[in-house]
């Protein structure tokens, strides 16, 4: 009987310990997910990207297609404005940038942006 109680107690302890470790790890991950990251890439729309228009992306498409950051390693992040002003994002359209924000899955909650060299020109038809 005592042996059975011991076994149950030990099993409960292992169970609780496992849950605790999982909680601690997930709490740490959640905290890390709230931290800002820096990403480098080009500001485009999903429509431009799917049409392969990396160097001539129509600016009016921005109102119809989500604005994205396309990084050098071919990852795509939908941009949502968090603390970043709309005009700053507009100025960076089509250009290579460093974007600062919080990554949530395939989205980045944008806080700031810096335009790098090698400006991509927008089509004249759009301006």
């Amino acid at each position: 009987m005592r042996s059975l109680v011991n076994k149950i107690s030990l099993s409960a302890l292992f169970f609780i310990t496992a849950i605790t470790i999982t909680l601690i790890i997930s709490a740490g991950s959640a905290e890390a997910a709230k931290r800002e990251a820096l990403l480098q890439g080009q500001i485009l729309t999903e429509k431009c990207l799917s049409a392969g228009r990396l160097s001539a992306c129509y600016i009016e498409w921005t109102s119809k297609s989500p604005v994205v950051l396309f990084t050098g390693d071919r990852k795509l992040y939908r941009i949502e404005l968090h603390r970043l002003a709309q005009w700053k994002l507009d100025n960076a359209f089509g250009k290579q940038v460093v974007l600062k924000g919080i990554i949530k899955g395939n989205k980045i909650m944008a806080n700031d942006i810096a335009v790098l060299g090698g400006k991509k020109k927008l089509s004249k038809a759009c301006l």
Binding site: V5, N6, S9, T17, A27
Partner: peptide
């Protein structure tokens, strides 16, 4: 023996609670 196991279990539980309290962001 049973008391000893219980004592150990309580002790470990207390340690775990302390760890959680320390890890949860204030």
């Amino acid at each position: 023996m049973l008391h000893k196991v219980r004592k150990q279990a309580i002790l470990i539980l207390l340690v775990i609670v302390a760890i959680i309290a320390g890890c949860v962001q204030k």
